[in-house]
């Protein structure tokens, strides 16, 4: 009973958790930049405001894709938390990202196109690492189910530390954090794929960002297994690492990002896979 109830509550509360996390992160970021920063509930204020704006859309398919991006991302998160197949989770996440990329291509704005291009390249950068990660977990546990990982008493972190490092290296790409925030790149392409969304439809994309936070931190939590204390420690560490990195680096170009991700993160994950399969 309990092992179903907790994930279901988590799934239902995921946007709320993600919003709080995002608000807290904005405060931490502001403090790192010696500012006071917005209130903790600022993302929810934005949410309420966006709901009250006039509904403008480029065309209905564009708006629909934006909303479907949110829905499919929530679905991917649900599968992950309920202990589903990790490969399925990763491909569902890929599906939600590609819906957004399609939305980006469906408009006529050049910045939207560029953003979609770059988002596709980002997918190319982090997706191989995630898949190798899933395969490594399969090698260790003999199953792709995340339920087995959540309940295993021996944390994955001790068995595959290199894979964790690889995950840390690709997380900034996924969460659109500096130095790998090329897909968003506010000063270059003013938000990329989000550019043409407005009002209620932007809200879907904006809230999907919060879900992405929950998704990524759950992936990090996977490495702790059933050890809740270690999991909390990993989450705090990842949070601080991401923010410190965000505030001490400039944005690199997408070619450098691809080279780094496929060269360093991918090889780390691959070495990890080799070690796991040999032992």
């Amino acid at each position: 009973m309990n092992d179903v109830l907790i994930p279901v509550i988590l799934i239902l509360l995921a946007p709320l958790l993600g919003g709080l996390l995002y608000g807290f992160e904005r405060i931490v970021k502001a403090r790192m930049q010696r500012r006071i920063g917005p209130p903790l509930l600022q993302p929810f204020y934005d949410f309420l405001k966006l709901a009250g704006k006039r509904r403008m859309m480029v065309h209905s398919a564009h708006a629909f894709l934006g909303i479907m991006h949110f829905v499919s991302l929530w679905f991917a998160l649900a599968v992950l938390l309920l202990g589903g197949d990790l490969i399925l989770v990763i491909f569902l996440h890929l599906l939600s990202t590609s819906l957004l990329i399609l939305a980006g291509y469906s408009t006529r704005s050049i910045f939207s196109h560029l953003g979609a291009n770059r988002a596709a390249i980002s997918v190319l950068a982090y997706e191989p690492v995630l898949i190798i990660l899933a395969v490594s977990i399969f090698m260790l546990n003999g199953t792709f189910d995340t339920a087995a990982v959540f309940t295993s008493s021996e944390p994955l972190l001790y068995k595959m530390p290199l894979a964790f490092i690889a995950l840390l290296l690709v997380l900034p790409i996924k969460l659109k954090k500096s130095p790998f925030d090329v897909a968003e790149a506010h000063q270059e392409i003013t938000g990329g794929v989000e550019l043409e969304f407005s009002g209620l439809f932007y809200e879907a994309v904006y809230t999907a960002k919060w879900l992405d936070y929950v998704f990524c931190y759950t992936l990090v939590f996977l490495f702790a297994g059933s050890n809740i204390l270690l999991g909390a420690g990993l989450l705090v560490f990842t949070f601080l690492y991401l923010n410190a990195l965000d505030n001490s680096t400039a944005r690199v170009s997408y070619k450098q990002m691809l080279r780094f991700s496929l060269g360093v993160a991918f090889s780390l994950a691959f070495i990890n896979l080799l070690i796991n399969s040999l032992t």
């Binding site: 790192m32 930049q33 010696r34 500096s178 130095p179 000063q187 505030n247 680096t249 400039a250």
Partner: peptide, 10 residues
């Protein structure tokens, strides 16, 4: 414009 917001603020 290089994407380094913290340095901008500083």
């Amino acid at each position: 414009n290089s994407g380094f917001e913290a340095l901008f603020m500083k």
